[in-house]
Amino acid sequence: GKMTGIVKWFNADKGFGFITPDDGSKDVFVHFSAIQNDGYKSLDEGQKVSFTIESGAKGPAAGNVTSL
Rank of each mutant, 00 (worst) to 15 (best):
Y40D: 08
D44F: 12
A12T: 13
A57P: 15
F32A: 13
K2T: 11
F16I: 09
K2L: 04
F16D: 03
S25N: 07
A61I: 13
P21L: 03
G46K: 06
G1L: 13
D27G: 04
F16W: 15
I53G: 03
G5L: 00
P60K: 07
A34E: 10
Y40G: 12
W9A: 08
S50Y: 05
G63F: 10
V49G: 00
G56N: 13
D44Q: 14
G39A: 09
G17T: 00
T4F: 12
A57M: 12
S33E: 07
N64E: 10
G17C: 03
F29Q: 06
G59Q: 05
T20S: 13
Q36G: 09
L43G: 01
K26S: 11
P21M: 03
N37I: 11
G5Q: 00
E45L: 11
K26D: 11
F32P: 04
I19K: 00
K14P: 02
K41C: 06
G56D: 09
G17K: 01
V49K: 02
D13H: 15
G5M: 00
G63L: 13
K2N: 13
A61D: 03
I19S: 00
D44V: 14
D23S: 09
K41G: 07
V49M: 02
G24S: 08
G17N: 00
F16N: 04
T52H: 07
N64H: 03
K48P: 11
A62F: 01
Q47P: 00
G59Y: 06
G39R: 09
D27M: 03
I53L: 14
K48T: 10
D27S: 04
G63S: 12
G5S: 00
K14H: 06
G59K: 05
F29V: 05
V49W: 00
A34G: 07
M3I: 12
T66M: 14
Y40V: 13
V65A: 02
K8W: 00
S42G: 10
G1C: 13
K14Q: 10
K58D: 09
A57G: 09
K41E: 09
M3N: 11
K14D: 09
G17I: 02
F29N: 03
G39L: 09
T52V: 13
V28K: 03
T4C: 07
V49T: 01
G24F: 04
D44M: 11
N64D: 15
I6F: 09
W9N: 07
I19D: 00
K41L: 07
H31G: 04
T4G: 03
N11C: 10
F32R: 15
S50V: 05
W9S: 09
I6A: 13
S67W: 08
G46D: 05
D23R: 08
S67T: 15
K58C: 07
N11V: 03
D27K: 03
G56W: 07
V65M: 01
S55P: 11
T4M: 08
M3P: 03
D13E: 14
V49H: 00
H31M: 02
D13C: 14
G56S: 13
G24I: 02
A57Q: 12
I35Y: 03
L43P: 03
I35P: 03
T52G: 04
T52F: 09
A61Y: 12
G63T: 14
V65N: 01
D22V: 06
K2F: 06
H31C: 04
F10I: 03
A57N: 11
S33P: 04
Q36I: 13
Y40F: 12
L68M: 12
T20F: 03
V30T: 04
I53E: 03
T52I: 12
V7R: 00
D38R: 12
D13R: 15
W9R: 06
G15Y: 02
K8S: 09
V28Q: 03
K8E: 03
S42T: 14
V65L: 04
D44S: 15
K2D: 06
A61V: 14
K58W: 05
F16M: 08
P21Y: 01
F10G: 01
K14E: 08
D27V: 02
S25P: 06
A61K: 15
G24H: 11
K2Y: 11
S25T: 12
T66E: 13
S33F: 02
S42M: 11
A62P: 02
V7T: 04
F29A: 06
D38H: 14
P21N: 01
P60A: 08
E45T: 15
N37Q: 15
T4D: 05
K2G: 05
D13Y: 14
D23C: 08
G59M: 05
Y40I: 11
F18Y: 08
A57H: 15
A12K: 14
W9P: 01
I35L: 08
I53V: 14
F32D: 11
Y40C: 12
I35Q: 04
G5E: 00
F51R: 00
K48H: 15
G15E: 03
K8Y: 01
T4Y: 08
L68Y: 09
G46I: 02
F18S: 05
K26F: 06
K41I: 04
K2M: 13
I6D: 05
D44E: 13
V7I: 08
I35D: 04
A61M: 11
D27Y: 02
G5D: 00
L43A: 02
L43I: 07
D44G: 12
A62V: 03
A12S: 13
D23P: 01
K26G: 12
E45C: 15
K26H: 11
T20L: 11
D38F: 07
V7E: 00
I6L: 08
F51W: 02
P60Q: 11
S33T: 13
S67V: 15
V28S: 02
G46S: 04
K14I: 07
G56L: 08
D44C: 12
T20A: 14
S55M: 15
D44T: 14
G59D: 04
S33W: 03
Q47E: 15
D38E: 13
T66C: 12
L43K: 00
D38A: 12
D22K: 05
H31D: 05
D27C: 04
N37Y: 14
F51I: 00
A12N: 14
P60V: 11
L68T: 10
S67P: 15
F16L: 05
K58S: 08
M3R: 14
S55G: 12
K48M: 12
K58Y: 08
P21D: 01
A61T: 12
F10Q: 02
I53C: 11
G15M: 03
S42H: 10
G59L: 04
S50R: 09
D27F: 00
I19N: 00
G59H: 05
W9Q: 08
G63M: 13
Q36A: 13
G17A: 04
T20V: 15
F10H: 02
L68N: 07
E45F: 09
F18M: 07
S50K: 07
N37V: 14
D38N: 10
I19L: 08
G59R: 09
E54Y: 14
G46F: 04
S67H: 13
K14F: 07
L43V: 06
K58P: 06
V28R: 03
K26C: 11
D38Y: 10
F29R: 06
G59A: 05
T4K: 14
G63N: 13
E54V: 15
E45M: 14
G5Y: 00
G17H: 00
G1I: 11
F29S: 05
S50T: 13
G17W: 00
Q36M: 14
